[in-house]
Design a protein around this nucleic acid. Sequence first.
DNA 1: CATGAATGAGAGTTCATTCAT
DNA 2: AATGAATGAACTCTCATTCAT
Lengths: 215, 215, 215, 215
Amino acid sequence: MTKKIQKRDAEASKRSIVLSAIKLFSTRGYAGTSMDELAKECGLNKAMIFYYFKNKKGLYEAVMEEILQEIYKAITQKISSSTSAEVQLETFIKTYGTFACSHPYLPALLLKELSDSGAVLPQQLFKSMRKLFGLFSDILRRGEKEGVFKKSMPMVLYFMVIGSLNLIVTTKPLRQKAAKLDDIELDTCSECEIEDISNYVTSNILLVLKPFYKE
Amino acid sequence: MTKKIQKRDAEASKRSIVLSAIKLFSTRGYAGTSMDELAKECGLNKAMIFYYFKNKKGLYEAVMEEILQEIYKAITQKISSSTSAEVQLETFIKTYGTFACSHPYLPALLLKELSDSGAVLPQQLFKSMRKLFGLFSDILRRGEKEGVFKKSMPMVLYFMVIGSLNLIVTTKPLRQKAAKLDDIELDTCSECEIEDISNYVTSNILLVLKPFYKE
Amino acid sequence: MTKKIQKRDAEASKRSIVLSAIKLFSTRGYAGTSMDELAKECGLNKAMIFYYFKNKKGLYEAVMEEILQEIYKAITQKISSSTSAEVQLETFIKTYGTFACSHPYLPALLLKELSDSGAVLPQQLFKSMRKLFGLFSDILRRGEKEGVFKKSMPMVLYFMVIGSLNLIVTTKPLRQKAAKLDDIELDTCSECEIEDISNYVTSNILLVLKPFYKE
Amino acid sequence: MTKKIQKRDAEASKRSIVLSAIKLFSTRGYAGTSMDELAKECGLNKAMIFYYFKNKKGLYEAVMEEILQEIYKAITQKISSSTSAEVQLETFIKTYGTFACSHPYLPALLLKELSDSGAVLPQQLFKSMRKLFGLFSDILRRGEKEGVFKKSMPMVLYFMVIGSLNLIVTTKPLRQKAAKLDDIELDTCSECEIEDISNYVTSNILLVLKPFYKE
DNA sequence: CATGAATGAGAGTTCATTCAT
DNA sequence: AATGAATGAACTCTCATTCAT
């Protein structure tokens, strides 16, 4: 009845650890995150982290699992409402963009992991990356089969999409700072909305896939 | 004479430290790299690192400075031989690609830095990043002025370029592993040469900038 | 009736804790044994250990009490069937040997305890040790009085007996390994049966106590 | 010149660590000894222990190596002055006794290690034990060959010797306490000198090896 | 009687950094 | 310029023990 009181609620405690871990791992990185700090952040005793997750790496795995499943679910859900390859591609990119923007830890963690080929989590990253990229790749392949898309290099296009979107999200503070201090005239897109950027990326990719495509 | 030799030794030692630091920082990240390990790697005493660089952060700054200047120099040099915006853009992308491929620490470090908005190196990264992006942006702007390029969002295009190229480089081991183990048919571009990819990226960007562009 | 079942369960649980504790304490030592591991070993919740025994030390005391009583009971029982000092001494040694061999935790724990003068368990060990040694000493004294034994140093003889028997038991794996790997010819008694050793020790002690004793 | 000042003297620091380690390991055991306490005890920073010895186990190894070599050296030195098996055996036992008494950490550590078959240091213990026992065994074998000793079980005799001597040393405080409090008449040899005990053990062993031996 | 959640203290170990030579 | 010795703080992780149910 008084279930909502956090104390002695295993699920809530575990959740609170994961949430704090997401925050810290995404800002300070794996090695840069300390379990002491994490414990303080989530308001639980440090030992509880090891009670629920066998060790630091185990927690990191759980965190990555969590967020990669989230984005995967978000995208598949949205995509399912259409069968057109073109619409699905558009949905993929836009959903990824808005999700990344509202869950900025995803780009931070993903870029960090991908920047050293999954040094911490090779197996895990590998599987999750494949799953998400598989989705993207399938859309392109189907479009190709149906004659609406040109032949392409899916891996490169995928990296153009998630590379740009992730970087746009993670560099936001940097770009805003740049805009203020800048003596040189340099448009760092500091005021751009994620929707505009997703749209721009989408139309760029479609330009590549569909010759004579009108934006 | 003795002095000169000492000075040469000093320069050599400093150089050796930076080189080892590049290697370690790019593979293990900032927090993941220990000064002990670094000292072992470069064959010098640990105290020498602090003799030449005030502290770990100072060394990291020197490392970033170094590699960002390198890539900047490489690109400006190549670009200077032409005045056509189109050729310059092509040169920018391809030079970046080949440089990233032959100096794979660049993508690793850059992505790591950009993935947390330069938490370690705000000021430094900021300036160097701006310089490189400034180069890219200038080309686009000039092309636009000359009527050969359409209006665009330079920041996004820049991220599409360096995002994809960097990811292609850093994920190479991952993608090759994926190619071997994979049960599903999934083209991870595991055998692609960087030249092909740079070409593909270039033509994609030109498709965006120049409507009706023939690849 | 419900009560009785509960009580039986309680007894059974307590017993199961003690048994697991004997196993772990004797192999890993007092400090080396963790309550977590112990709980896992005995299949009960960790808190139950503290429910039945006030703390780790309390459990250790109970364990020692238990096994010292066991060996004491085993010996007194066997001894009672004879009144001859010589036969009783023989029975003491042989019973100790076979018991130690079939309950190898006894030597392990006893040697550990005696090796730091009962730092963990002064009072407890003290009393139990005295009881067992008292038995041995009584036999010698009576034999002396009856003129069948020479005057001796009971404490030293006692240590010669239990020292050798305990060591033979605890070093068994070590000695067997030695036998296999050994390049040098060295008889480590790796195949000896405890009966033979007990016999040998017995006859040695009798040789000391009874001059001109024929083995 | 001011070499004797402890600071910045590696050899002295290492020595001080080993000495403190001997003290703590022998009283509290391996698992029971904490590196914090050890650092406090030897007056050095905790990190220095890991600077000189790679880890706790490494330090323990060094400690065991040290003391086992000491006793081995002490015995071989004394033994070398005679060629008679009988005298050598006597010297072995007495030297072991006096050494054990003046370096009481030896019995404590040896019994602890032997009581779980070298759980911490199997390989090391194995070699050192073999060396020392080899010495003992050789004497017996030679005596046998020369016709002065009867056939025997060297391993058992060895354990009777070191078992009793070690226990006499480690139980000294216990036995003295027993003597004071005791209501029962029980001779715990609380006032015995190690020489008397060594003599007694020696003559007992000789009684076993030499029938009709007069003490 | 029994459990899982929670804790504070301390474990071993590594860290970046400085000092003395 | 260069080294090895030294340090204190921080690290990940485990401990014995208790609380709430």
